[in-house]
């Protein structure tokens, strides 16, 4: 056999060994209590194509959208919990309610933060608005849940008071802990590090696409932990009690 053929044969053997070891250990990870990669799972959700407005002012669905724009989706459409399935007495937000409708608290890029934020399709809220939720002065604070999309180490070093942790690699267990809030239609404020961090956007998309959370109930705190911790604001440390 020639040098080149030996080379390819050896490479194939090593590749097979690495592949077998990788998949075998990955299969074992869950039984040893570590996070396992599910081969078929989409961990990084891309934005849904948005409806575009043409020159005449009509809304035209993007070709790939299948006729439904992101903002018009409901829980029923996505197979998630519809309004009818909510427990009695639960608070359902059909829009981003007080924050989006209050002219004094405009949505959009937080003026207190710097950095370029990745593009996303969700309603953005500012540090001032998040502070109002935390101190309870926001009228919808009681039915709003803060979600920290960072990993466990940075979360335990410090997070916004009351925030639940929900990291993409442990999302099933983390979401199980807040399943009641999701079913009750709570408004969710999601944040991560801020700046270029995409974990909060990815989590919002996962919640919308896989859990049927209404897009209008998902608010993105773009400034994230960087903006929150930059000021003299309350901080919780350690695991959530």
């Amino acid at each position: 056999m020639t040098w080149g053929r030996w080379m390819i044969l050896e490479a194939a053997i090593l590749l097979a060994a690495g592949t077998a070891a990788g998949f075998a250990v990955n299969a074992f990870r869950e039984s040893s209590g570590k996070a396992r990669i599910e081969l078929d799972r989409q961990y990084f959700i891309r934005p849904k194509p948005r409806a575009a407005t043409n020159d005449a002012g009509n809304v035209a669905a993007a070709p790939e959208s299948g006729g439904s724009s992101g903002t018009s989706r409901t829980g029923t459409e996505t197979g998630g919990p519809g309004v009818d399935s909510l427990p009695s007495g639960s608070a359902v937000h059909s829009a981003s309610s007080s924050l989006a409708s209050d002219p004094a608290t405009p949505t959009g890029v937080d003026a207190e933060t710097d950095g370029v934020h990745p593009e996303h399709e969700f309603t953005a809220i500012t540090t001032t608005q998040v502070a109002a939720i935390v101190d309870g002065t926001d009228p919808d604070a009681a039915t709003t849940l803060l979600i920290d999309a960072r990993d466990i180490a940075p979360y335990e070093e410090g997070h916004i008071p009351g925030a639940h942790r929900c990291y993409f690699s442990t999302i099933d267990a983390d979401l199980a802990a807040i399943a009641d809030y999701l079913e009750a239609g709570y408004r969710l404020v999601v944040y991560c590090n801020g700046g270029e961090c995409e974990d909060s956007i990815n989590l919002c998309r996962m919640l919308r696409d896989e859990r049927g959370v209404l897009e209008e109930n998902l608010l993105l705190y773009e400034g994230g932990w960087k903006a929150w911790s930059a000021g003299d604001r309350p901080v919780d440390k350690g695991p959530r009690s």
């Binding site: 690495g18 592949t19 990788g22 998949f23 250990v25 990669i37 081969l39 990084f44």
Partner: peptide
């Protein structure tokens, strides 16, 4: 998604 997931599963072991 299998492409990125498979590479993430296999690559560290292939390196090792």
């Amino acid at each position: 998604p299998q492409i990125i997931n498979a590479v993430a599963i296999v690559m560290p072991w292939l390196e090792l």
